[in-house]
Design a protein around this nucleic acid. Structure first.
Length: 573
RNA sequence: GCGCCCGUAGCUCAGCUGGAUAGAGCGCGGGACUUCUAAUCCUGAGGCCGCUGGUUCGAGUCCAGCCGGGCGCACCA
């Protein structure tokens, strides 16, 4: 069992014993009792609020409970000291041997140290990217891709059965426009001089598509009516765009399990809506006019509506357009119905900030379809402001000259892109400055973490170079200063669970920065005091112990980076 | 007008899903080192956590209402 759950169990046992002996009244609710490391480390290694939480229901004074609990816990060999403090906290100081043992646990666990079983038995579908297949990925898509992918890895690491999924929006008007744009490029490939009208996709990436179409169809469709070529052109162009997108994803190290086509839904849209209809959640009605600027061309019209307002949405939502075809929402309802039928116990969608208004209706639909049994968590990912020497770069897909994901990855590397995308909470805006992200300094967390790992890798090499004959590590040689570093590394399993529970992968990046800082601090002590160095030519025994410490830190850094999808560097240039 | 997200140090942001004296980096002040464990280090100052109420033993965190910023608002995807 991991260190923190183990001590939580000790506290629970002690409370149980006090209940059994009649010192505490029976039937108390222990669910609000926490056992956590206190923010201020001078308060010890662990603190529990048990006495304060239980005081009122037990009809006792907090300190009275705390003292009894302290007496019980102080008897345990792992606990060096149990002290009542403040309004009724019980602070625990662990025996140093606990931390030495944890070093062994890190070594033994290796890449699995920190893996959790919290998700065992749960299967989660994480849908991310889902960029329209109308061109290569640009930086607007990048953050959602990285955060979604890291979240999927994180949940996997926390024991969930994870499916990584991409929804291909290949059924709407935009892909028709794409097909028409490709038709122009097709004619161009056959020698015509073309003019790309406003509203079409002007990007050069359609030039090879036009050539491929020319090769396949010859000139037979140049002046044919649109009805003859629209469907095949759309199909082929979308397929080629998805190839581009998959290449882009591969550059980021992303490989998704399922690519789900909107167009493939077909009659299943009707089936999904029948399910809602059977629940009495669909009706023909007229919506009230929305307030504000969007109301100008409003006209009351009877529509097919879903009773989203019964499930927390602000209003009911249209399922059919005025021309009788399904709305995008109707398709998405069917898509999520499909996910539910696949049996996931939880769904996660990553949305761009501009789709924030869509959250409630989607959750309403899933709530209705699953009878509230399957939660849909929608994570909003804010925009990335791309900066180049302080100057913001615009990115618009329509303009044709957007900054592509591929350009950025080629310039700064996959690992830098992925790490930076996780250095902020995903729902707050992020600046990505080309100069800053590759800077080799303290304030660049990518560098700082990688540098720590590289130092750790080099420390072993240095010991060899120094010709030190290393014995088997004797961890009892490590003192409190050394063990302070273990305490940070030992947080890793907790961080994994917290990040997975809140579904916030950025916590991993922040933690790694903390761990790196703790390591660098330790390292820097060697400057003032040579006895604190990791490699000591005249003390092979201590060197071996310190190297074991360093390697444990390196292991945790690697595990964290692996969850983030970032490769750990063993040297920097 | 309504809904969602966000207001934390001069700046950029964390804050363990309610805990103790609110943290980090940059910047600013002071100091150290003239080197290879310096692609610096140590240290100090700096805060009515937007405002006002409420819940609680305890609130940056939860609730309500304001103020300020961003996004969205029948039929696009």
């Amino acid at each position: 069992m991991n260190l923190y759950p183990r001590f939580a169990a000790h506290v629970a046992d002690a409370l149980g014993a006090l209940t059994a002996s009649g010192d505490l009244p029976a039937g108390l609710d222990f669910s609000n009792v926490t056992v956590e490391p206190p923010r201020d480390s001078t308060h010890g290694d662990l603190a529990t609020n048990a006495a304060m939480v239980l005081a009122k229901p037990a009809g006792m004074k907090p300190r009275e409970i705390a003292v009894m609990l302290a007496q019980k816990l102080a008897r345990l060999p792992d606990i060096a000291e149990a002290e009542v403090a403040g309004p009724g906290f019980l602070n625990l100081r662990l025996d140093p041997q606990v931390w030495r043992d944890e070093l062994g646990a890190i070594k033994a666990g290796a890449g699995d140290y920190g893996r959790s079983t919290m998700g065992t038995g749960s299967s989660v579908n994480v849908e991310y990217v889902s960029a329209n297949p109308t061109g290569p990925m640009h930086m607007g898509h990048c953050r959602g891709a990285v955060v979604g992918d890291a979240l999927a890895s994180l949940l996997d690491y926390a024991g969930f059965d994870v499916t990584r999924e991409y929804y291909i929006n290949d059924a709407g008007g935009q892909v028709d426009t794409l097909a028409r744009s490709a038709h122009l490029r097709y004619r161009e490939a056959l020698g015509e001089t073309i003019v790309i009208p406003e509203g079409y996709y002007p990007g050069d990436y359609l030039v090879p598509v036009g050539k491929a179409l020319a090769q396949e169809f010859g000139d037979s469709l140049v002046s044919a009516p649109e009805a003859e070529w629209l469907v095949p052109f759309r199909q082929r162009t979308v397929a080629l765009m998805m190839d581009l997108i998959r290449d882009d994803l591969a550059m980021l190290g992303i490989r998704q399990d399922v690519f789900f086509s909107e167009a493939s839904l077909g009659s299943r849209v009707q089936q999904a809506l029948d399910t809602l209809d059977a629940k009495g959640l669909i009706y023909e009605g007229v919506l009230e006019a929305p307030k504000g600027d969007a109301a100008e061309d409003w006209e009351p019209r009877p529509q097919t509506l879903f009773r989203a307002s019964q499930f927390g949405d602000d209003t009911d939502r249209a399922l059919k357009k005025s021309d009788g075809s399904w709305t995008y929402f109707a398709g998405d309802v069917a898509y999520h119905y499909d996910k539910l039928q696949r049996g996931y116990t939880a769904l996660v969608d990553m949305f761009g900030a501009d789709h924030g208004g869509y959250v409630k209706r989607m959750q309403a639909a899933v709530r209705a379809l699953s009878d509230g049994q399957v939660p849909l968590d929608i994570k909003i990912v804010q925009m990335v402001k791309l900066m180049r020497a302080g100057e913001p770069e615009k990115m618009s897909k329509r303009s044709g000259n957007f900054v592509t994901l591929a350009d950025v990855v080629e310039e700064v590397g996959k690992d830098v892109v992925r790490f930076i995308m996780l250095t902020k909470r995903s729902d707050s805006q992020l600046d990505f400055d080309f100069a800053k992200v590759v800077e080799q300094s303290r304030d660049n967390p990518v560098f700082y973490v990688q540098y720590a790992h590289a130092r750790i890798a080099s420390v072993g090499r240095k010991a060899v170079e120094a010709g030190i004959d290393l014995p088997t590590p004797d961890l009892s040689l490590l003192d409190d200063t050394d063990l302070a570093l273990v305490k940070v590394a030992a947080q890793w399993p907790r961080i994994v669970e917290q990040a997975a529970a809140t579904r916030e992968p950025h916590r991993i990046a922040f933690y790694l920065a903390d761990l790196a800082a703790a390591f660098h601090t330790q390292w820097n002590m060697g400057n003032d005091d040579a006895a604190r160095r990791f490699v000591l030519a005249d003390n092979p025994a201590l060197t071996a112990a310190r190297l074991a410490l360093a390697q444990a830190v390196g292991q945790v850094i690697r595990n964290g980076l692996a969850v983030m999808g970032v490769e750990a560097a063993s040297e920097l240039h």
